[in-house]
Amino acid sequence: MNHDEQALVFGAGARLVGIYTPARAPAQGQAVVLANSGIVHRVGAGRVTVTLARRLAQAGIASLRFDMSGLGDSVDYGSEGGGWETSAPREISEAVGLLRLLSGVHDIVLYGNCGGAAKCFWAACADPRVTGLAFTNPPPHPAEFEGDRMVATAAGEETTVQLVRLFDRGLSALFIYADGDEGLSYFERRLQSRLAPVIEAGRLQVRRVPHSNHTFALQPAQEHMMALILDWLIHRIEGEGH
C-alpha cells in the first residue's frame, strides 16, 4: 500500500512538492531523483514515474520524485525564473541535497524522460554530486535537429563536449530509446562516434525498447523500460558498467 511514502515541500521559499519513497529492501547504496518529463507532472505519463519509484524501493533504492516550479503541484517562480535552463539545475540540485539527507546515500542518479533528460543533463553539469544518469528518449539538441534534417551547430557541439566531460568526471549513464524515436536518430548520427570510448568502457549503455512510442504508452514497453533501468542500476552498483 506504499504507506511509507512521504509527501514533502522543499526548496527555496518552500515552493517545490515531492514524494520521497524510501528503500524497502536492503539499501543498494544509490538513490534516484526523478524529474518531470516535459510539462507532465511528477507521476509521469501513464503513471510510470510512480511505478518506477516503487519498483526502485523494492530493489533497495530510495527516490525522490518532484515537480519543478510551475509544474504539477509546485508553484511558479514567475519573474524570478529565467527559464528551465536556469531553474532546473537549481531545483534538481535542491532535490539531490534533500535526497542525500533523507536516504543517507551519496551516490545520486538522475532520471528523466525527453525534456526531463535535458533538465537532468543541465543539473549534472552544474552539480558534481550527481554520479549517474538514466535517460529515456533524451532529445536531440534543438538547434541541430528538425524532422529528419540535422545540422551541426556551435551550440550543439558545446553540449556534446559538456556530455563528454561528464563521463570524464566519472559519471555513468544509461540511454534508453523507444524504437523510432527521433532522439535515437540524433544519437546515432551525432553522438555515437563521439561517445564510442565511454560506450566501449561500459560507462554509457544504450538500449532500445521496440514496439513503443515516445511516452512508452503500452504496458509491455513500460515494463521493458523499467526493467532496463533496474538492471542497469543494480549492475552499476556491483561495479559492472560503473
Partner: peptide, 8 residues
C-alpha cells in the same frame, strides 16, 4: 507564495 500542503 508557498506550495500547497501535500499529505497522505
Amino acid at each position: 507564495m508557498n506550495a500547497p500542503h501535500p499529505f497522505h
